[in-house]
């Protein structure tokens, strides 16, 4: 008997000419007409995902359900052999709340490991088998960490940030950064300005640029807000729309214009300080050089800014800033930039 095993069949669906390939694959046994050949398909998606392929012959299905709480307990117990009794009591406390969030072994084992270290902290002797009183004490100690840990479930610990390359998803990367209060990476001054101007360009409607930045680059007086009923409604609609649409795109010219404006503001602020300190250095000048374009491309590579579709009329590339507000605020704080006054509040 020969068995052919096809793993990850669900990926076939995204192939070119997938429907005929899937049809052929599922009819393979029929076409071969060799009873000594068995064919096994392994797929993470259910059989109805393949129905569109002209009612091909349906294989017998064997369903593998997800792990139950007991399964997970047993599986995780295997990974920690040093003190199984202690780990087992730890799991019986911790696993249940985590189980409400995720059932995947990989995610659970990653997030439970540091928590277990915290759990063990009060123990002097790790080989010890805990009694009831000890269990309670350990649990009380852990409880404060538990909620925080649940909410940071998918964060990669800080120390590993250098080892983990950028192949992680950008969402994960951002989540890691927003965890701590300080930026945990280095970025040049002009790059920070560039990132902030990209953020502003993405959040604000383009029509508002003229109002926000006057010719001298300083902050102009903003119009007084109206708060009638209709404008409130409009605002709600706007907020809804922004929620749905996400950050807007902008052409390079707009980014550079905003960059020049806010860099100028930053410069004057820096100069004020320098005058106070009686230093006459020309350090803070941020000119529009080819460096800026280089920095823009490295921001793109770092996945802070992404290149959107090009504009059909102008043909130039459009960009979109995909960092969240939390991070933008942090970047602004690190260079003392008054970001909030430049953002259009709806």
């Amino acid at each position: 008997m020969i068995y052919l095993v096809f793993d990850n069949v669900e990926l076939l669906r995204s192939w070119e000419r997938s429907s005929s390939i899937i049809r052929l694959l599922f009819r393979l046994h029929d076409i071969l007409k060799i009873p000594e050949v068995g064919i096994i398909y392994i797929s993470s998606s259910s059989p109805d995902a393949y129905y569109s392929s002209h009612g091909s012959i349906e294989p017998l299905t064997v369903y593998f359900p997800d792990y139950t709480l007991e399964n997970l307990h047993d599986i995780l117990l295997i990974s920690n052999q040093s003190n199984p009794k202690l780990f087992s009591t730890f799991l019986s406390v911790v696993l249940k709340p985590f189980y409400r969030v995720t059932r995947r072994v990989d995610e659970l084992s990653v997030s439970l490991q540091p928590l277990f270290l915290k759990y063990c902290e009060p123990l002097s002797d790790q080989i010890l088998v805990p009694d009831e009183a000890m269990k309670r004490r350990l649990f009380d100690n852990l409880q404060s960490h538990l909620v925080a840990s649940l909410n940071n479930l998918f964060m990669v610990p800080h120390w590993s940030s250098h080892q983990i390359k950028s192949d992680r998803e950008c969402s994960k990367k951002r989540s890691r950064k927003s965890g701590s209060n300080e930026l945990d990476f280095h970025m040049s001054m002009s790059m920070k300005y560039l990132l902030l101007s990209a953020f502003i360009a993405s959040r604000n409607p383009a029509t508002l640029d003229a109002a926000l930045f006057d010719s001298s680059g300083c902050l102009s007086n903003r119009k007084r807000k109206r708060s009638s009923m209709t404008s409130m409604n409009q605002k709600d609609n706007m907020a809804e729309e922004i929620l749905l649409k996400g950050p807007g795109t902008f052409p390079l010219e707009r980014l550079l214009a905003i960059f020049q404006c806010i860099a100028h503001v930053g410069e004057t602020m820096a100069e004020d300080e320098q005058i106070e300190n009686c230093i006459t250095a020309e350090g803070g000048s941020v000119g529009l050089t080819s460096d800026v374009l280089l920095e823009l491309s490295s921001l793109c590579i770092a996945n802070f800014i992404c290149k959107g579709g090009s504009c059909p009329i102008e043909g130039s590339a459009r960009y979109r800033c995909i960092i969240d507000e939390e991070m933008a605020v942090k970047v602004a704080r690190s260079i003392n930039f008054p970001l909030s006054s430049y953002l259009y509040r709806r």
């Binding site: 409400r100 969030v101 995720t102 995947r104 995610e107 649940l150 909410n151 940071n152 479930l153 998918f154 964060m155 969402s171 989540s175």
Partner: peptide, 15 residues
């Protein structure tokens, strides 16, 4: 008791 942070929810949506 099932009030979780945004990241956790995002990951749940990915699941």
């Amino acid at each position: 008791s099932d009030n979780y942070s945004k990241i956790v929810c995002l990951r749940a949506m990915e699941h």
